[in-house]
Design a protein around this nucleic acid. Structure first.
Lengths: 333, 333
DNA sequence: GTCCGTCTTTGAAACGTTTTCACCGTAGAT
DNA sequence: ATCTACGGTGAAAACGTTTCAAAGACGGAC
């Protein structure tokens, strides 16, 4: 069906090795042969077979990136950062979406391992250290994104989530709010838990401040809307006066939910999210948030991955960026 | 470094062929051997080499999806639709982002072709018919998404953009607006041009209505904001009384730009977007839009692709969904 | 005791590259 | 005229899998 290097060789009247040399080490072959081979390639519409190439080489030129949620702009920005760095190195990034499912996460890890990718970038759903250790033993480096490696066995690129949670909550307290509600995100995810711990720390510093968590809320806009409805359904005196959401998607949903019931943000309830996605600034009430340098995180992660690939013995490195509080109207900014 | 099927065979005391049979045709091999082989696999941490597998098989089990913009939720929803359908068939979807660059689009097409993917789903930037024809000649089916195939040589899944443009604009006229401005998206993209044509048709039906286009505006939130600023900078009597944006991202940007200058939406200027992404409903002023069934489009595209792969001779099929007008506050809904 | 059919296993070939090494011819140096 | 160097080329091996034809083992039927 498809032309192979053998067909090209035949047509150009040279050997297979020479064709390969034209493709990979042009300087080794006589100009005359180069043009004959190129002509043959054009005539036959020859396209290199990556599988054969890779089989021979033992490894591929792609990097796998597994994200928790493609719908979350934080992750797509991060992906673009990684892609950009990869470009510069002649690598390609293949994006896989685990959708916060352990199964899907495992499936994509298997897939990438079978494909012998150059390395794996992963924002893990739960503890994946054991699995990644296997992967690494088989020669594939991995870097965690959006979360530190518990035992520092792997390099990682993340943001100080605890600090982010602290900054967000302290801000809510500083504008006079006292009854804080935290919601969103699978609560058993490390990132989320860290943000919550930061919130607790901030609350502990202020006498009379309380922190409530509203569990059972996932990470999408819809989940946030449901949470907003739930809060609105309470008697006014039982409602919090501020809500801190695990991410901006949830916060945007909460905003919709509250607004639908005539609850004012920020007058009745102040609202802050996390990630500072582009849409946060464009929300009904522009949303305060905690900014993560998503693009930069992606770039950095890819760089670390490549470095580890070049020198597997090097020590793992934990890069932790500082989150930045962004105040907008949803907290009276 | 990594264990091969040969190592497994040796360890289990069987031949290579038997190991392969355990992996692919379990019923052909004696239970006793199966367990010995499985034990060996576990002990050695054997992982199939996909490159070798694919080289032998001649084709891979992945489908490539090239989108114009990963940051646009319309495309990520579409991707999830495709992914979901692929899952059910044991295929994987690899997502590539052309970022509205002809170069990047070409590079990913090359990459997928070299990888001998099972098929390609593409939302093309410009005319790619010639290139896709080549691809198909070499045995890889392709389906267009978000746009019809000009000459109907390829199957496609799209929305009636002309109708969408018409619906949006007619709605603006029905609420009494007469000076319509169209903006956003590379104007040389077919999808955008169709929407504009629809707008023209609607305007032509109403005496005294005018349609202006504001060129040089791309497809991101930032571009929209700049457009909003530009409109705000005009003398009040030169401003349009309604703006139709090529997509919701741009519309959200325009909304920010106008609001920043104290121009009221919809009182001063009504605003409508396209795609109806989740964030549209959550905007400062909830955004009217034209809904595309993104998820369904992705599912359908993947289905068509697989069908064409199974029977390359079948006629191409143009699936065109009807867009749906969604009225919200930004047009006084 | 022979034959036949079934079940299981094996060895070899093939997929399309890249790389290694040996070879050849030519040109320049002696 | 001979030797050396060198640029260019080609043949063959290797990568790890799957498939296929063939052979082996075993039991039952005659």
């Amino acid at each position: 069906m498809t032309a192979s290097i053998r067909d090209v060789a035949e047509r150009a009247g040279v050997s297979v090795g020479t064709v390969s040399n034209v493709l990979n080490h042009r300087e080794r072959v006589a100009p005359e042969s180069v043009s004959r081979v190129n002509a043959a390639i054009a005539e036959l519409g020859y396209v290199r077979n990556d599988a054969a190439r890779q089989l021979r080489a033992g490894r591929s030129a792609t990097v796998g990136l597994i994200v928790l949620d493609v719908r979350n702009p934080f992750f797509t920005e991060l992906a673009r950062g990684a892609e950009r760095e990869a470009d510069a190195r002649g690598l390609s990034v293949l994006l896989a979406n685990s959708d916060e499912s352990v199964d899907r996460e495992a499936r994509y890890l298997d897939l990438f391992e079978q494909q012998r990718v150059r390395g794996i970038l992963i924002s893990p759903y739960q503890e994946v250290g054991d699995r990644l250790r296997q992967v690494r033993e088989r020669g594939i480096p991995a870097v965690l994104v959006d979360r530190q490696s518990e035992d520092h066995l792997f390099s990682s690129v993340s943001v100080d989530d605890e600090l982010g949670g602290y900054l967000a909550t302290r801000h809510l307290l500083e504008i006079g709010r006292r009854r804080i509600l935290f919601t969103g995100g699978p609560i058993d995810m490390r990132q989320i838990d860290d943000r919550l711990r930061g919130a607790r720390r901030a609350v502990a510093e202020v006498a009379g401040a309380t922190l409530e968590t509203l569990p059972g809320v996932a990470s999408q806009v819809d989940d946030g809307r449901a949470a907003g409805d739930a809060v609105a359904a309470r008697a006014a005196e039982d409602r919090p006066d501020a809500i801190f959401c695990a991410n901006d998607l949830v916060a945007l949903g909460v905003l919709q939910g509250l607004s639908a019931h005539g609850i004012s943000v920020p007058d009745d309830i102040a609202l802050i999210g996390f990630d500072d996605i582009d849409f946060a600034a464009a929300a009904v009430v522009p949303l305060s948030s905690v900014r993560q340098p998503s693009r930069l995180m992606g770039e950095t992660a890819l760089r670390l991955l490549v470095e580890e690939g070049d020198d597997p013995a090097r020590a793992s490195e934990q890069v932790v960026f500082e989150p930045e509080l962004v105040v907008r109207a949803s907290t009276g900014g």
